[in-house]
């Protein structure tokens, strides 16, 4: 079936873990946007949710760091972080091993990916799932792009991954939804945590909504690091969703910098054709 949904959202751990410290109006707006995104995924009829995330040394480390990895398990446990610290109870999310195998097999025709039959979800997936599928009743296939440990996955390869995921999703009979998670500009887990370059974010989101491949791939890590912090490296997940959207235009449903959440909190989606 053709891909039924493509969107992106934030995944910062503070969204759940430091919820009580945020401005209540800003927090309520974000939470409502997440809920609306979950509603849209359900209304799409999605039978499985592929989450493209940028995990943070929960499963992959510099002893064997893949540029890309895709989960191939029947279930995934989380959060790997302390449940109280993250503000998300321990959970077991359903996977779809058979579909993972078929998706990975197709993706591998053009993109070399690692696969993993075990995977503990960190906040990169756990925070979005806590809103989008709070009952953990939709099978998930996790995908990771190395946005943390240099040398990082080149942006054109993140684009190629998105194209491959789209081709794979369209080739299977199941209805597939795709969500990319990450920050735009942010300096997470550093003394500058909370810093957000709103102008940079809005420019990026403009490129994302226009699905302008040339402009999305025009970034380089040196300028991203300077303008958007090391958290900005996570644009790879958003860019992969752009590629998967196949030229469709996008809409930002919510964007508000919330400093205690350490990111310009975002939900956005493409109008798939």
């Amino acid at each position: 079936m053709p891909l039924v949904y493509a969107g992106v959202c934030s995944h910062a751990p503070g969204i759940r873990g430091r919820a009580d410290q945020a401005d209540p109006v800003a927090r309520a707006g974000l939470y409502a946007a997440f809920d609306a995104m979950g509603d849209a995924i359900r209304q799409s009829g999605a039978e499985v949710l592929i989450v493209v995330a940028a995990e943070h040394f929960a499963n992959f480390f510099m002893n064997n760091m893949p540029s890309f990895a895709i989960g191939m398990a029947d279930f995934y446990d989380g959060p790997i972080e302390d449940a109280t610290w993250l503000g998300i109870d321990n959970f077991r999310a359903p996977g779809h091993k058979d579909l993972s195998l078929r998706v990975i097999t197709e993706v591998m025709q053009t993109v070399d990916v690692a696969y993993a039959e075990e995977w503990k979800f960190d906040h990169g997936i756990a925070v979005p799932l806590s809103f989008l599928t709070p009952d953990y009743d939709l099978p998930v296939i996790p995908v990771n792009i190395n946005c943390q440990g240099p040398p990082l996955t080149p942006l054109p390869r993140a684009w190629a991954l998105g194209e491959a995921l789209r081709r794979a999703a369209d080739a299977v009979p199941e209805k597939v939804a795709l969500v990319g998670t990450g920050g735009i500009s942010h300096w997470p887990a550093t003394p500058d945590s909370g810093k957000i370059n709103e102008a940079w974010d809005r420019d990026f989101l403009d490129r994302w909504c226009r699905n302008d491949k040339a402009q999305l791939l025009a970034y380089d890590d040196t300028t991203v690091y300077a303008d958007a912090g090391q958290g900005g490296f996570e644009i790879r997940t958003f860019i992969s969703v752009s590629a998967a959207a196949g030229g469709a235009a996008g809409t930002v449903h919510f964007y508000t910098p919330i400093p205690i959440f350490a990111v310009g909190c975002t939900t956005a989606s493409y109008q798939l054709r």
């Binding site: 401005d23 800003a26 810093k195 919330i258």
Partner: peptide, 22 residues
């Protein structure tokens, strides 16, 4: 990759945005 670039802090930043911060 974790250089420190300078930041006023979340409380001051939130105030600039018209937000409260606990």
């Amino acid at each position: 990759v974790y250089a420190v670039t300078g930041y006023e802090g979340t409380t001051a930043h939130a105030a600039q945005l018209g937000q409260t911060s606990g």
